[in-house]
Computed example of a mutant assay.
Amino acid sequence: MLSKSAEYAIRALVYIQMQNWEGKRPGYRQVAREIDSPEHFTAKILQIMTRFSLIYSLKGRNGGFTFDEQDGPLKLYRVIVAIDGEKSFTRCSFGFKNCDATNKCPLHDEFSKIRDNFAEMVNNETIQSLAQRIKAGEAVLTQKIH
């Protein structure tokens, strides 16, 4: 349900949060390397995130990306909307432009439930909750091939 851009954005923000907790502000090259994302693509995604004030970019020797603790937890919903817009929560599984309760595609009823559950999940989860799971050793940020 997520675009590749949204996947990379979430991973990048989780990594940045984890670095911020250690008192560090990573640059886009470091973020790209650590989340296994192309540098140019990561730079564009982080530029979008700063444009939406989801993170902040500091220039100079001690620069890098950071969260403002006063902003509070960042819901995944806001990240997805910044990257993909609202369509992630409204699109038809068949790609119909006018799929609704009166003009249904064959998967409308079942897909609506999945879409609603997805919207609920991303409204409950935050970048910080995901980073905390990784920090606690309950999850990983990247999968290393053995």
Rank of each mutant, 00 (worst) to 15 (best):
E86M: 05
E86G: 01
T126Q: 01
E138Q: 07
P106Q: 04
L107F: 12
L107E: 12
E69F: 12
K135T: 08
N98E: 08
S88I: 02
L58F: 11
A119N: 05
I114E: 11
N62L: 14
Q70Y: 10
I83V: 12
C92M: 09
N103I: 09
F118M: 06
I48T: 10
N62K: 15
G64Q: 00
V81W: 05
F67S: 02
R91L: 07
S112C: 07
R51N: 04
F118N: 05
C105M: 14
E120G: 08
N123Q: 03
K104M: 14
M121C: 02
E86P: 01
Q128F: 04
K97I: 06
T102A: 13
D100A: 09
R91Y: 09
R78H: 14
E125M: 13
S93E: 09
R91F: 10
N117M: 07
I48V: 14
V81A: 05
G60R: 08
I134G: 10
C105A: 12
T90F: 12
K135C: 08
R61I: 06
N117Y: 05
E125S: 08
L76H: 03
V122I: 02
N124K: 04
T90K: 15
T102N: 14
G72M: 15
I48K: 15
R51S: 03
D68T: 00
Q132R: 07
F67K: 02
D109G: 07
F65A: 06
K113G: 11
K75P: 14
V81L: 08
K59T: 07
K113P: 10
F89M: 03
Q47G: 08
T126K: 00
Q70W: 05
H108G: 03
G72L: 15
F118Q: 03
F94L: 13
C105Y: 14
I48Q: 15
S88R: 00
D71S: 09
K104E: 15
K104V: 05
S112Y: 09
I80S: 09
R78T: 00
A101G: 10
R78F: 07
T126F: 05
P106N: 02
T126D: 01
G63C: 06
F94H: 12
G64M: 01
L58I: 12
Q47F: 13
K59E: 11
K97Y: 07
P73M: 05
K87Y: 13
N103H: 15
M121R: 07
S129C: 06
Y77P: 07
Y56E: 12
K87G: 06
R115N: 13
R115M: 15
G64H: 00
Y56N: 04
T50A: 13
F89Q: 01
D109A: 13
P73C: 04
D116C: 03
F111H: 03
A136W: 04
E110I: 06
G95K: 08
N98H: 10
I83D: 06
L46S: 01
L46K: 01
I80E: 09
I83T: 05
Q132N: 09
L74G: 03
C99G: 09
R115S: 14
L46R: 01
Q47K: 13
K113F: 11
N124H: 04
G72H: 15
V122H: 06
I83Q: 11
D84T: 00
R133K: 13
S93V: 02
F94E: 14
Q47I: 02
F111M: 06
A136P: 01
L130A: 10
